[in-house]
């Protein structure tokens, strides 16, 4: 075997040794022993998790995380918020750097294969397309062959290219994509509908509109490590309790979200159960 062959084999052997080393500990015991819940949240994603003017991480899911902490440990302050992004949140969870993620995590089959979900507490609109007001496009089929800005790693990128034939121009982060849209490097920006709606409220974006509306609604849930039954049960119980107390409806109001039927119905069902 030549030098490179040996190198490749030892690299694979090393990597697989790391891979097989994942241990499924009982997170609930760890959390109680530590007396602190470590949660992965977004901090660039209003209204779910973002930095307010005082530099604090706030948002709908941050409130939910604090509620869960207070249910598990008796105080909403026994919590450590770890900022995560779409591209690393699952890895953070798997690596044990956080106990749970509440980070705009859409429920998909592929994710279900590697992690477990909590109860689905939000039914979020999928992606929509932000375009200049003058644009005449109004459905996904018309975008075939067009250059549309996007974000690297988004779960719908494959569907966009394969099903709609869109020529995606994907950036690492949102500011770059917004900038490229303003530069007309692409005719639109495909992203999570709620975020784009919020963007339109900014003065700089008054010449833009949501040209193409979401093709699907996707339930959102917290993410847990697989086969972590005791912890999953405790977290789910806390979420359902919050729903039953009408907390999620309250947070919708606090963070300026339109009141959704999904949350209202879950609140009613949870209240009936309690």
């Amino acid at each position: 075997m030549n030098k490179f062959g040996k190198l490749a084999v030892s690299a694979i052997a090393l990597a697989s040794a790391v891979a097989s080393n994942t241990v499924f500990a009982d997170t609930l015991d760890d959390v109680i022993a530590r007396d602190k819940l470590i949660v992965g949240v977004k901090n660039d994603y209003p209204p779910y998790g973002y930095l307010n003017d005082a530099g604090e991480t706030v948002g709908f899911e941050v409130e939910l995380a604090k509620y869960v902490a207070s249910e598990l440990l008796g105080s909403p302050d026994k919590i450590e918020l770890v900022p995560v992004v779409a591209a690393n949140r699952i890895q953070f969870l798997e690596a044990g750097r956080v106990d749970v993620i509440f980070a705009t995590l859409g429920v998909t089959d592929q994710r279900d294969e590697v992690i477990d979900f909590t109860v689905h507490y939000v039914n979020a609109a999928g992606p929509s397309v932000l375009m200049p007001k003058a644009a005449t496009v109004d459905n996904w089929e018309q975008l075939k062959g067009q250059s549309i800005c996007g974000i690297q790693g988004s779960y719908y990128n494959k569907k966009m290219t394969e099903e709609f034939g869109i020529n995606l121009v994907n950036f690492k982060n949102q500011p770059d994509a917004y900038r490229a849209l303003k530069d007309n490097r692409c005719i639109g920006f495909v992203f999570d509908d709620m975020t784009l709606q919020k963007k339109l409220e900014e003065a700089d974006w008054s010449d833009y509109k949501i040209a193409v509306t979401p093709y699907e609604y996707l339930p959102m849930a917290g993410g847990l490590r697989e086969d972590d039954a005791a912890f999953a049960e405790a977290v789910n119980k806390a979420i359902v309790k919050a729903e039953g107390e009408g907390k999620l409806i309250e947070w919708e109001t606090v963070f300026g979200m339109p009141h959704s039927e999904y949350i209202a119905e879950r609140a009613k069902a949870a209240a009936a159960q309690n």
């Binding site: 591209a87 592929q110 590697v114 690297q152 988004s154 779960y155």
Partner: peptide
């Protein structure tokens, strides 16, 4: 990057 974000087989 896109493939491991889709499949989580990082």
């Amino acid at each position: 990057g896109q493939i491991y974000n889709d499949t989580f087989r990082t």
